[in-house]
Design a protein around this nucleic acid. Structure first.
Lengths: 208, 208
DNA sequence: GTGTTATTTGAGTGATCGTTCCATATATTA
DNA sequence: TAATATATGGAACGATCACTCAAATAACAC
């Protein structure tokens, strides 16, 4: 099983470009301009390859976008599981998640905002399939967060009457809003202040 | 001053279509598909007019979009001022605003989500000017909300130490997140539950 | 060496993009 | 009626869209 990535081919002319590096450049461009706002010409220019190489190496614009989304979510230290690992409480895990997003959305080394949170919200009918990709990611995030809260309710860490789904939707909404505001120029401090305000809404507490 | 709208022209062949009705149709299309996702061909088809009439009546795609945004925000009962009028407290005003957005974003008579909250977040460089239009609206909303909270602090209705900007950013983020989730299929009940979670904590209060 | 396979380059596909031109039609003003 | 002014439908503008083709090239196996 040596079909993916930059591994050597058994046969045929070897690829003339670094697939991972090209994918990363494509990811950054999609991140900044969205799916519809990024043209094949834009991609080939920044990836440094010809259209035929792009299609030979990635299949189609949509397939490339799909891979870019996977790369985006596989960034070290960005995944849900990594962030909640080692947290002493669900509350602490939630704060970590929110803070990580606030910091990631305003990292000067990458485009402002999020590649998923608000992607494909307005899309042409012919790009519905592509818009569904980030939407599915949002659904997945919502489900993971719901599961986290459900477990916490089961473990008695959250009040028994807590609505896990609504709480998950609430924090997801905060993240999505932070992504929009980061895109609009909000600073890391701006977003971290939002995080702390949102954390003050923890169920069952009087005051933070 | 009788230059706009459907009023009669002094000279020349009169317009053959209902300008307000056509603009409304364009607004709904932009709302559903965004600026980049809506083509002139789409617009002329649903507006029932030829390209020349569109350009003669509205100037350009971007000018039409600008007018559509104005129409969107001028919907009866949707404006900031209308919603906070008559509220007994800032907290009540805030809840009214959030609830109005939750209901508006899931109105079955109109496209799901918001025409402004997440518009233009991913955009091609050549559409930056158009993307700036909803971004400016978001800034305006943030400022109005900040002003509301500042007044409340001045009036002693909110604790003196309250950060009006961060609180405004927080509620704006909730609204923006609700818009994304509405687009993804969230129901009115889903969004109203988010609203109540967001309202569950109020600065200076112990518990709701 | 020959044959096979995959990727390269470079040109080019039809379709659609936002926009404009033109001749014609229809109104008011003189 | 003549002049002026705006709106119309229909065709077309150059540019760009995502995508593909043929031929050349570079690795492998034999």
């Amino acid at each position: 099983m040596k079909k993916d990535g930059n591994e050597a081919r058994a046969r045929g002319r070897p690829r003339g470009f670094d697939r991972d590096a090209a994918l990363r450049k494509a990811m950054l461009l999609f991140w900044e301009r969205g799916y519809e706002g990024t043209s094949i010409a834009d991609l080939t220019a920044t990836m440094g390859i010809a259209p035929a190489s792009l299609y030979g190496g990635f299949g189609s614009k949509q397939a490339l976008y799909r891979e870019a989304l996977v790369l985006y979510t596989s960034a070290p230290g960005a995944s849900f599981a990594e962030l909640i690992a080692g947290a002493k409480s669900v509350r602490e895990a939630t704060r970590r998640l929110l803070r990580a997003r606030a910091i990631g959305f305003t990292d000067p080394a990458t485009p402002a905002g999020c590649m998923i949170s608000a992607a494909g919200v307005g899309a042409a009918p012919e790009n519905r399939d592509a818009a569904e990709l980030p939407a599915a990611r949002r659904r997945g995030g919502l489900e993971r967060w719901t599961g986290l809260f459900r477990e916490a309710i089961g473990a008695g860490e959250l009040p028994a009457g807590t609505d896990a789904v609504s709480l998950a939707r609430f924090y997801a909404a905060v993240v999505q809003g932070m992504a929009v505001q980061a895109h609009d120029g909000a600073s890391e401090a701006d977003l971290l202040a939002i995080v702390e305000t949102a954390m003050a809404h923890w169920p069952g507490d009087g005051r933070e």
